[in-house]
Design a protein around this nucleic acid. Structure first.
Lengths: 148, 148
DNA sequence: CCCGCTAATGCAACACGGTTGCATCGGCAA
DNA sequence: TTGCCGATGCAACCGTGTTGCATTAGCGGG
């Protein structure tokens, strides 16, 4: 499962670059996400962190770290088929302002596509635009193979 | 919002055809789903059933009816972006593949826009397309007025 | 090297969606 | 009309996610 061992300093730099304090919780969670082969649920991450020899991280802290990672774009959050949120580390080197997401309905994974985003459609009177996301749903190659 | 008024006998026939007893709960829930403009959550369906003058339906019964409808193929169940299940009647007539949604960040409401959907971007090898949704976030006129 | 500000954490309690066990009710067929 | 058994209601439970608040610790400045 532990595919990659992400560099510690890379992770610390990423957190610092996001303008926040480098804390053990953030480092361990981001490292875990980056080395995970598939999107992880809160429970799975908690379980993994409980067995790495280091002190336990509180449930709530884990939720807050995950939400913070998503708010900075370092991670993605998506509900899987069971309705549980799964988190995955954002792929580096991808410009995040404007592109298209593919969401796997099987594992909850998020994949960034190359295609440029479509133009903004016309809104009825009174509506205020905040943002736009083209979400494509389907199954990723891995889930297609396992036909879940 | 209540677009269509589905025929009562059509609904009873559909339930009977699925090989189950025709009960008020099943009839009312299926009728509600068929006349709904968008997929409904458990809470929304319960709310709607509480205001139609007929006796209330138990939370658990509603869950069981919804699950039964899905198991027979009369309805579909899918987790929305917040991770809660939404149910929709299976209607072969309605082309649901493609249109644009506006999601209000204030009240959580979903509005269907008229604009035609953008073309499907090219997918990498191995990905299987299930559907596409252009999600526009912002505030609806009512929430803009109350500036929450 | 220490100090202090404030972001980040831990803890407790809560909110909500969804499920299970079991006693009772009522569709429907004989 | 009767009776079986599927469907319902009720209560209690579980897991996921959130909120409020007191305490801790990262890190910039003296």
């Amino acid at each position: 499962m532990a595919a990659i061992r992400p560099s510690l300093s890379e992770i610390q730099d990423a957190i610092r670059a996001a303008g926040a304090r480098v804390t053990p919780a953030r480092v361990r969670v981001l490292a875990g996400l980056r080395s995970a082969a598939a999107p992880q649920s809160h429970a799975e991450i908690e379980e993994a962190l409980a067995h790495d020899g280091q002190p336990a991280i509180d449930r709530v802290t884990l939720y807050r770290v995950l939400d913070w990672l998503c708010s900075t774009g370092l991670a993605h959050k998506a509900a899987d088929a069971r309705g549980v949120f799964r988190f995955s580390a954002a792929q580096p080197n991808v410009e995040h302002a404007a592109h298209v997401h593919f969401r796997c309905t099987g594992c909850g994974g998020v994949f960034c596509l190359e295609s440029p985003p479509p133009p903004v459609p016309e809104l009825p009177r009174g509506f205020r635009l905040a943002g736009m996301a083209l979400d494509i749903r389907g199954e990723c190659p891995r889930c297609v193979r396992e036909h879940r």
